[in-house]
Design a binder for these strands. Structure first.
Lengths: 334, 334
DNA sequence: TTGTAAGCGTTATCAG
DNA sequence: CTGATAACGCTTACAA
């Protein structure tokens, strides 16, 4: 299909070694012969076979990106910035959707291992990460995002969920809210737990009581937020909360809808604040207050950390944990 | 790092060939020795080196997916379904964002060529596709999505923009609208042109005049839709349109906002319909009427077509063009 | 049924 | 500075 080094060598009547040296501008080579060969290679439309190179160099300039679901509004931006940074550095990235499925995650891990990727960026699909640790044993460099995995020679980059939740709840408190509810996602997911923790911390710091009646959890989806909010709204006027912090924007959106349907004015009668700052939150029709995750920073950073690990042989970031600061985005619902 | 065939062969005291045969369950091999070897390989944690395999088999079980921007709401779903289908078939996919940039597209093409991908799925970033055609020369199998590229041994899968636009405009006509405007995207993009064509066709078929005053184009973004809509609204009550068909949902969203801001009621006083059915269109707060592209079908189909091309050596789908039917989604803005 | 050896397209080592 | 040649890990004729 394409000419090989062999072909070029034949045409130039030099050895393979010389051609290889010319193409990789090795220091020990005659300028003239080098130019001749490079020109010839260009003419013949030579394309190095990266597979063959990978075999001998033991480096493929390829990384794997394992995420639960690119369709989830959180990931495209992360993926995009990772890919951008990778491109910049001459790497290509395998996109792997694990579909929140441990089995599929495991399978992909194997495939990527076989395809000899240089490193991995993984957004684990669940709390169970034992199968992931197996991979780390094999000296593969891994950066985890959005979930901490404790293990040597890997780094975890997460946003500070506790701080983010505090930011949100404190903004509510600043607006004189005393009765603040919390809507969480799946209880076994650490992000949800951490955001709940931040919620409690903020209340405690401001001398507000933590009422279990104000805390309900569901499933990180809009219906769930809607359903839970309706429960809150059934409480009598005395005890009913006047604001809610939802553990993600989808939940918040559902809650918002329930509040509006009930005839309450937002934010005058009732305030809603979410977490994530997904695209729709900024729509003029929505204007949801929320806590933004620096998705793009996270992507850039995770690749650059991986790159460092690749370069320095891992010495640098063994078992590190990097916390990124979330940022409060106050719009029209709080 | 991992044991190789060599290691296994040594331990089992057989030849490399035998091990290879056992692992690929070659027909000509003794069941017993095969089982022994397979078991041993498992114990030793053998992982085939796909790079080495690729070198000799000349097949990498890898495809490249070139899209303008995964951050664009249209692509994640397409990418997801492609990846799903690929996973199913044992393929891995390289995600490449071209960033609507011809140079970057060209660069990626080269990289993928070098990495010996078996095939490509490309959503071209512009109308200029000459550099893409070069790739086709090299017998690489390519499926184009959302833009037709005429060339042998490639297939184009697009949705029928003309029909989709007709669907939208006719739904407006059915609701008694006579003065229907059109907001387009960049004029040099074929999707925009085709949707305009469908718009005109629908008017003509229903004996409505085509007024150039009712046709304006901008840039497929919300601001653009907003700006253009305001222009339309400046027209005097007599001639001012009562409905608008926007060439994509972003434009429609911008237009919608302008209409609402002007105090008009939607859809009573003014109807808006878009194209694409991006996620936000379905939000309860938005409920934008639109024309949906079967994104997921497009993804699935494009991979399965590529797979066919790969299998059958390309005989089957030379220069084919597949039109997918868009579907009208009437919500609350029309 | 199994072993031997050549070869996939590169790079790297070692003489010259 | 250049040329042979081995090696990367695997598959596949061809022999045995």
């Amino acid at each position: 299909m394409f000419p090989t080094i062999k072909d070029i060598a034949k045409k130039a009547s030099v050895s393979y070694a010389t051609v290889s040296r010319a193409l990789n501008n090795h220091p020990e080579i005659n300028e003239e012969t080098k130019n001749k060969i490079v020109k010839l290679a260009l003419e013949m439309g030579y394309q190095p076979n990266a597979i063959a190179q990978g075999l001998v160099r033991k480096v493929t300039k390829t990384i794997g990106l394992l995420i639960p679901d690119i369709t989830n509004p959180f990931f495209p931006e992360v993926a995009r910035s990772i890919e951008d940074a990778a491109f910049e550095a001459g790497y290509t990235v395998f996109l792997c959707n694990t579909n929140w499925n441990e089995e599929r995650e495991r399978h992909y891990l194997n495939v990527l291992l076989q395809k000899q990727v240089d490193g991995l960026i993984i957004a684990p699909s669940s709390e169970k990460v034992n199968h992931l640790k197996k991979v780390l044993e094999n000296k593969l460099k891994v950066v985890f995002i959005s979930r901490v995995v404790n293990h040597a020679n890997c780094t975890s980059i997460i946003i500070d969920n506790i701080k983010g939740a505090q930011l949100a709840v404190e903004s509510l408190i600043r607006k004189e809210h005393k009765k603040i509810a919390f809507i969480g996602g799946q209880e076994d997911i650490s992000t949800s737990r951490q955001r709940l923790e931040g919620y409690k911390l903020a209340l405690r710091k401001n001398n507000l009581a933590i009422k279990e009646d104000y805390i309900k959890t569901g499933s990180f989806k809009r219906d769930s937020g809607h359903f839970i909010m309706r429960e809150f709204l059934k409480m009598d006027a005395e005890t009913r909360p006047t604001a809610v912090f939802a553990a993600n924007d989808l939940l918040a959106l559902g809650a918002l809808q329930a509040v509006k349907n009930s005839g309450l004015n937002v934010p005058a009668d009732f305030a809603v604040i979410g977490f994530d700052d997904i695209e729709v939150a900024s729509l003029p029709e929505i204007q949801l207050s929320t806590v933004a995750q620096p998705k793009s920073d996270m992507g850039k950073l995770s690749f650059s950390v991986l790159l460092d690990m690749l370069k320095e042989g891992g010495g640098y970031s063994v078992g590190r944990k990097i916390l990124l600061d979330p940022v409060l985005v106050e719009r029209k619902t709080s």
